[in-house]
Computed example of a mutant assay.
Amino acid sequence: MTGSVTTQAGALPRGILIFIHSLHGGGAERVAVDLAAQWAEAGVAVTLVTQADVASDVYALHPAVARVSLGTAGESGGGLRGLLANVRRVRALRAQIVRVQPDIVLGMMTTASVLAVLAARGLPAKVIATEHTHPPSQSLSGLWLRLRRWTYPRAAQVVALTRDTATWIETHVPGSRLAVIPNPVQWPLRRQSPELAPPGAQAGHILLGVGRLHPDKGFDVLLKAFAQLAPEHPEWRLVLLGEGTERARLTAQAEALGLGGRVDLPGRAGNVGDWYARADLYVLSSRVEGLSNTLLEAMASGLAPVAFDCETGPREIVRDGEDGLLVRPVEDPQALAAALGGLMRDPARREALATRAVAVRERFSTASVLARWKAVFDDALAGR
């Protein structure tokens, strides 16, 4: 499949194959689904390929996007077993590339990008690798680190979410052809299952955090910070919207801190926009981030944000003191409590920050992000 699709914005590739481990849930997975939908609506033949089974999908695909599962997600392990499993993955992906004949193969996240480069060797398709997490925060084996150093310079382009990540790759993976493309903010936010009703007005003010219940998200630090604030602010509740492996640990921590009646963990909601609309203040307590989709969504929804100034991500979204607050040092509950407490006590300042926060709708608009992707496609297909 060669050639291009002409749109008002110019020529797009005729075919794109997106490869990602799964659609179980998460920021990169949702971005993959959203990009696939945008390109499909523009007339591109889009195929989304995962290792995981289709039955495990959390996100619904655009009806024009073809969906393929390699069925290789469960094959893992170290040593020879792991090597053979990855050889099978490469062969299975290569078979799909040969079948579909896309112009572009887009690897979503590190291991998928590495496998995509290996699978497309010698084929006409151009591979674009992507990094959705700042590399120093990743836990990759020595083999995957060596494979990244070997494959990324052989990709047509390597796309980073942030300037800091691009700088790291430039230093540690020399020879990579780099571009920086942030995630777009989807506005208005889409609704999907499951839908959970946010608490009513009788619940008082809501401090909202959204994300996987995972150590990277720093919800344990947030609970410590809220424990300092709760006695002074009895009208406020903390809601952690999401699901993950840390649910039991966080629930136990909230009880131990005496917050059992003040903290809610309702699960994952497909109608997250309703929760942003109900909340009074947004908090991002992450230890590490790529580029936070939830932070963009909260600001686009008109919420003032408070975020740890972790190594990458929030500082490229929040303009400190203008449309939100950046907190230093990271993982410091006292510093986070001080920033949150100041805004909890000052509704006028919350409103002023929130009014300016909605500018992310333009700063990170889908149109501007898609234009950057088109430039990357142009360079890749031109062989630059």
Results as ranks from 00 to 15, higher is better:
206 I>T: 08
221 V>S: 02
259 L>P: 02
270 G>M: 01
199 P>D: 09
307 A>L: 05
252 A>E: 15
210 V>W: 03
244 G>A: 13
286 S>T: 04
260 G>Y: 04
328 R>Y: 01
211 G>E: 04
262 R>P: 08
238 L>W: 05
256 A>M: 12
227 A>W: 04
301 S>E: 07
258 G>N: 07
315 R>I: 05
307 A>F: 08
214 H>L: 08
275 W>V: 03
310 C>S: 08
306 V>G: 03
235 E>H: 15
307 A>S: 15
269 A>V: 07
282 Y>H: 08
267 G>F: 14
278 R>G: 02
255 E>T: 15
308 F>N: 03
232 E>N: 14
240 L>Y: 05
319 R>Q: 14
210 V>L: 13
268 R>M: 12
313 G>W: 04
261 G>A: 14
229 L>Y: 04
331 E>T: 13
328 R>N: 11
300 A>L: 09
329 P>M: 08
268 R>A: 15
238 L>S: 06
324 G>C: 10
280 D>Y: 05
320 D>N: 15
304 A>I: 07
198 P>C: 05
267 G>C: 13
200 G>F: 07
297 E>A: 05
330 V>N: 00
211 G>W: 04
313 G>R: 03
290 G>C: 03
211 G>D: 06
254 A>F: 00
222 L>N: 01
262 R>A: 15
294 T>S: 15
253 Q>W: 02
217 K>W: 01
229 L>T: 04
327 V>R: 00
257 L>N: 06
282 Y>N: 03
330 V>T: 11
237 R>T: 02
267 G>D: 11
271 N>G: 05
297 E>N: 07
228 Q>N: 08
245 T>N: 13
273 G>H: 00
285 S>G: 08
278 R>C: 10
313 G>V: 02
208 L>E: 07
212 R>W: 10
318 V>N: 07
241 L>T: 08
326 L>C: 05
316 E>P: 00
298 A>S: 14
282 Y>C: 01
322 E>T: 13
240 L>C: 14
222 L>T: 02
245 T>F: 03
218 G>P: 00
267 G>T: 14
331 E>N: 15
272 V>M: 10
263 V>L: 14
278 R>I: 00
208 L>Y: 10
230 A>M: 10
270 G>R: 01
326 L>S: 03
292 S>L: 09
265 L>T: 06
264 D>G: 10
249 R>H: 12
208 L>F: 08
319 R>H: 15
294 T>H: 09
309 D>I: 00
232 E>V: 09
264 D>Q: 14
252 A>L: 09
216 D>F: 06
307 A>H: 01
254 A>E: 01
324 G>V: 07
313 G>T: 00
204 G>S: 07
251 T>K: 13
297 E>C: 06
317 I>F: 05
290 G>S: 06
313 G>A: 11
323 D>Y: 01
202 Q>M: 12
210 V>Y: 08
322 E>Q: 15
319 R>G: 02
236 W>Y: 13
303 L>Q: 09
215 P>Y: 07
289 E>G: 03
320 D>A: 11
303 L>M: 10
249 R>C: 07
282 Y>M: 10
316 E>G: 06
298 A>V: 05
297 E>I: 10
318 V>A: 12
